[in-house]
């Protein structure tokens, strides 16, 4: 990206909780930084912040997004630079306030200031469709909808897509937020055996372009245990490779979609079909 920056604002959202928004925000943010992009990740989950923990920065939080909005701290004071990736920055959420402390004007100002300083602003949305979630998506250019191949997650994603098409600033200007589907916790073997919705099923139902397929993997839990994005903790693991592929697609590269294996290959060979 050029100097005199104007960042691309990405919201990572889902409606349903526990599908992997924070994990994906950390992994994609880190992967972008690993590609040399200047990135800030913002935690919008006021009162239940966790992006700091997943990034291993939980003991370095002094100021937060609410402090910046209320003028208690300047933006540069609240930004935490990652110790491993100098291009990666975190703007944490407040743990003590509630989501009503977020204001539309306040968020707009913070985003506008960050746009001039970074290549990418990745907003980690809270679950639900209330204030935190609507403000996380409000100024987005691009949305990544994180979905598990499971009925409640797909339904909630559909609802979120409806909100992205009506409640964002872009939608209100008559434009369209660029939407991408990220399927997480995918188990190829189970999908092939008809036990789990397949990638094709989810794509057909939600009809938005696919950004990536992240396999269910113990590497994801291991990475969050130690507070390190999975793309940094074990860059060669299946989920990390899937996040790197997704990151390249996010940057506009055309690369073939790989359906990552969930590690039960012998069983899959015996009982599963090849991926379509």
């Amino acid at each position: 990206m050029s100097q005199g920056k104007s960042a691309r604002v990405v919201v990572v959202t889902s409606g349903k909780g526990g599908v992997g928004k924070t994990t994906s925000t950390a992994a994609l943010g880190a992967a972008l930084a690993q590609h040399g992009e200047k990135v800030v990740v913002i935690d919008f989950d006021v009162g239940l912040r966790n992006l700091d923990l997943v990034l291993g920065a939980e003991r370095r939080v002094v100021f937060d997004l609410i402090n910046v909005i209320h003028g208690v701290a300047k933006l540069p004071q609240a930004l935490i630079r990652d110790k491993r990736l100098e291009n990666l920055h975190l703007l944490p959420a407040s743990q003590t306030r509630d989501k009503d402390a977020l204001t539309e004007d306040g968020v707009a100002k913070v985003i506008a200031e960050l746009r001039t300083k970074f290549d990418w602003i990745v907003c980690d949305s809270p679950a639900g469709i209330e204030r935190g979630a609507t403000l996380a998506m409000r100024y987005a250019d691009t949305a990544i909808i994180v979905t598990n191949p499971e009925v409640s997650s797909v339904r909630d994603s559909d609802r979120i897509i409806g909100l992205l098409d009506s409640k964002t600033e872009k939608a209100e200007r008559g434009e369209c937020v660029d939407k991408h589907l990220l399927i997480t916790r995918y188990q190829l073997g189970r999908a092939n055996r008809g036990e789990m919705l397949s990638v094709d099923d989810v794509l057909e139902i939600l009809s938005i372009p696919l950004l990536g397929i992240i396999p269910e993997s113990e590497d994801v839990l291991r990475a969050s245990n130690v507070g390190c994005p999975v793309t940094l903790n074990n860059a060669l693991s299946a989920p990390a490779r899937a996040y790197f592929d997704a990151t390249r697609r996010l940057k506009g590269e055309q690369i073939p979609m790989r359906v990552p294996n969930d590690g039960r290959s012998i069983f899959n060979k015996l009982f599963g079909r090849k991926a379509a």
């Binding site: 499971e150 797909v154 036990e195 789990m196 919705l197 397949s198």
Partner: peptide, 9 residues
Amino acid sequence: SAPVARERL
């Protein structure tokens, strides 16, 4: 059960 999930959705 995935086909059932798909149709219900």
